[in-house]
Amino acid sequence: MILTNTETIPGKKIVEHYGLVSGNTVRAKHIGRDLMAGLKNIIGGELKGYTELMKDSRNEALKRMMQQAEKMGANAVVNVRFSTSSITQGAAELYVYGTAVKAE
């Protein structure tokens, strides 16, 4: 499956559009990570635990989107966009959406 965030696929031709596909996940951090983040909050800098968490969740959302596209019979998703929103304290929603297409 080809993913791009441009409207076209460089080097390929889009022959069919299938419409919107999307995937989301809501993730909460766990206590261990929160504790470390609390400590890290004193000295600042990168919160590696959170970076990992966001990366994993984003991959999960991407996977769901790709599954949806596959079901439609698409072999590529173009114009992929990400959005993050914090819903409640300690939980973040990752949302990915794009247009499923068939490319040759």
Binding site: K40, N41, G44, G45, E46, L47, Y50, T51, K55
Partner: peptide, 8 residues
């Protein structure tokens, strides 16, 4: 990606 925090 990167998550950064401010110091105290």
């Amino acid at each position: 990606e990167c998550v950064v925090a401010q110091d105290y």
